[in-house]
Design a protein around this nucleic acid. Structure first.
Length: 593
RNA sequence: GGGGCGGUAGCUCAGCCGGUCAGAGCAUCGGACUCAUAAUCCGUGGGUCGUGGGUUCAAGUCCCACCCGCCCUACCA
């Protein structure tokens, strides 16, 4: 049964290039999932984009002497290029600075406001005197009033660990430019999260046994202490507040997190419009049978398991104050929130400033996308923090990707091409032949089941078990010794090629680029698994910007597919590059300290 | 300070509701093979499952405390 599946991928923040830790959290897992779901026959809509508003981008732009928009333009493009290079199959990867996004974010705000879930409140805020902008707590530092440590930040003292308010700091200073912040009354809008305690509670309870326990436990725990949360800031870079008297205020904008989570919806709407059917998004957002899967790193659980559902409930009129759905109609809340843990780099936290980092761009300049995808799938932070080391990367690449899978493909096709020149016709099959064929064919079920549950490590490990069995089969059958028994040799090679084809199919979600190569090497025609492309678009003739999109309805299906004897075979080219162990030292030398 | 997650062989990691759970891959060592990017295949050593208590007939697997690492900590005051 075909199902509509929304793959909502966390929006990378456009204040700089993204590193491999970022894409290990949201990028690769969401793409593996989406590719599998498409192969399984479901209608996938995979959306994301760059998150471009907020103070950190403004601060970075000020530092570089450019406007926030210019900075966002630059990194939007860089990030889009990188994600395309990784082969992430977005149906639409857009950005939050589009007119469409502004309109949709404002619509959600209005819907929540109309239903009474947003209210104003006067608070004390720190303002930068030179810019008039909100100075976020963590950009203020001073002397800790509790322990006297003089590098305390406005939100917390790193020395004594106490949580602070910036107004408590002795001698507060802006970390941006050293000026003394002014504490002044300012009016902001608050989202009334307590009004959703009940509906969120039953929503989350209903996910028991379905979501990863760490996500659910975390979200349930937050329920105990829901407080109204500010959804506006004193800043000129962001989405204006769509209320009379506020709309035109130059220094009031929606808090970046509020508009960012709306991006899933606005991107879906943008996608629909570009696809020629402006209402197509409704199939993923309003069809009760549709499912929405959200992928992110663990730092984002609160927004996806708590706040975004609350916003949707409020928009639908399903909180404590009831209400009615906004003009878009009632919207689906997330079916599942899939969170990754964190990747560390050679035992340390990623840090751009300390050069403890490898950017996606730099990685792809030297290594293949599938090599990184493989590493993240098999050794990434799926259930706990994991460590990326160059040694481990080289080991995995050379010992597993190249030596096990790449070599199986190469030796099988090579022998068949050399001896027969085509996919051979099998003769009578032995027990060993049938055992391997069944083993391979029967793997689709369990591997697919793991993929459905987002258990990617288990899935790829089980697929690789088949690869190992195939290598063992060849070692036992020794087809290279059967020059005087060509019929038996043909049968063996037929079996080997069939299993290579099965493995290629099962590895497609993880390794789409190399699977396409195997498809072609085995004489397959047409597109096997579609790859993303960047395209320049605009809004009604406005400024153009890049998006990632693509046609992913290739031939790939999640099923055993009989190979066709007689299909001509050419000598194969190696699937993957074997890495010189020296790259470990070279890469380590690039890291800071 | 509060909440959460993790600490399992040299390395990277699997181990849902307690009872073949002490595992996989790589690395080491020994052997086989040569079709293949010196790849593959077979065999082998190695861990008191962070520490200390407790519950139980039985605990990496549950409870408590502690140590270490990581994530979150809005609003208000």
């Amino acid at each position: 049964m075909s199902q509509h599946i929304l793959t909502a991928v966390a929006w990378p923040y456009a204040n700089g290039p993204r590193h491999i830790g970022h894409v290990s959290g949201f990028g690769v897992p969401s793409d593996v999932f989406s590719r599998y779901q498409r192969m399984a026959g479901n209608k996938v809509l995979m959306v994301s984009g760059t998150d471009e508003h907020g103070t950190p981008i403004q601060v970075q732009a000020d530092k570089e002497g450019v406007s926030a928009k210019e900075l966002a333009d630059r990194y939007n493009r860089v990030i889009a290029e990188d994600l395309t290079g990784l082969g992430l199959s977005y149906d639409l990867f857009t950005r939050t600075s589009t007119r469409n996004h502004y309109a949709v974010a404002q619509e959600i705000f209005k819907g929540l406001h109309d239903n009474g879930y947003i209210f104003p409140r006067t608070t004390m805020g720190a303002i930068s005197p030179s810019t008039g902008r909100t100075l976020p707590d963590r950009y203020i530092e001073g002397t800790c009033p509790i322990c006297g440590y003089d590098g305390a930040r406005g939100d917390q003292c790193d020395n004594c660990g106490n949580q602070l308010d910036p107004i408590q700091l002795v001698n507060p200073k802006s970390r941006i430019n050293g000026e003394t912040p002014v504490f002044t009354e300012t009016e902001h809008f608050m989202l009334d999260l307590p009004a959703f305690a009940e509906v969120l509670g039953s929503y989350l309870q209903g996910k028991q046994g379905e979501w990863r326990p760490n996500v659910l436990k975390f979200a349930l725990n937050l329920l105990g202490d829901l407080q109204p949360r500010a959804i506006s800031r004193d800043l000129d870079w962001g989405v204006p507040i769509p209320l009379d008297g506020w709309r035109d205020q130059p220094n009031k904008r929606l808090y970046v997190w509020f508009d960012a989570v709306v991006g899933y919806l606005s991107a879906s709407i943008e996608w629909a419009r570009r696809s020629g059917d402006p209402d197509a998004w409704r199939q993923w957002w309003q069809n009760p049978d549709a499912r929405g899967y959200y992928f992110m790193g663990k730092d984002n659980i609160v927004f996806h398991a708590e706040i975004w559902p609350a916003m949707l409930f409020g928009y639908n009129g399903q909180g404590a104050r009831d209400g009615r759905p906004g003009s878009l109609g009632a919207l689906n809340v997330p079916s599942e929130v899939v969170s990754s843990e964190f990747l560390t780099m050679e035992g340390r936290k990623f840090s751009s400033s300390r050069q403890v980092v490898i950017y996606v761009r730099d990685f792809l300049a030297r290594y293949d996308a599938d090599a990184l995808r493989y590493y993240i799938a098999v050794a990434g932070p799926e259930n706990q923090d994991t460590d990326f080391t160059w040694q481990e990367f080289v080991n995995r690449n050379n010992g597993e990707l190249v030596a096990a899978w790449g070599n199986l493909v190469n030796r099988s096709i090579s022998m068949a091409a050399k001896n027969i020149g085509a996919i051979p016709e099998p003769g009578d099959l032995t027990d060993a032949d049938r055992a391997l064929l069944e083993r391979s064919r029967n793997a689709f079920g369990p591997v697919g089941a793991e993929l459905t549950r987002s258990r990617f490590k288990n899935a790829i490990t089980e697929a690789f078990d088949v690869v190992r069995d195939a290598n063992r089969y060849l070692a036992e059958q020794e087809p290279w010794k059967l020059k005087d028994d060509p019929e038996r040799q043909k049968s063996i090679l037929h079996v080997a090629l069939q299993v290579v084809d099965d493995c290629k199919t099962m590895l497609t979600p993880f390794l789409p680029g190399s699977s396409n190569k195997v498809h072609a090497m085995l004489g397959g025609e047409g597109v096997w698994s579609g790859m993303p492309e960047m395209r320049e678009v605009d809004e009604d003739g406005g400024e153009s910007y890049p998006v990632i999109t693509g046609s992913y309805d290739g031939a790939a299906r999640w099923e055993h597919r009989p190979i066709t004897p007689g299909t001509p075979l050419a000598p194969p080219v190696p699937l993957f590059k074997k890495l010189d162990p020296k790259v470990v030292d070279e890469e380590l030398a690039r890291l800071g300290e």
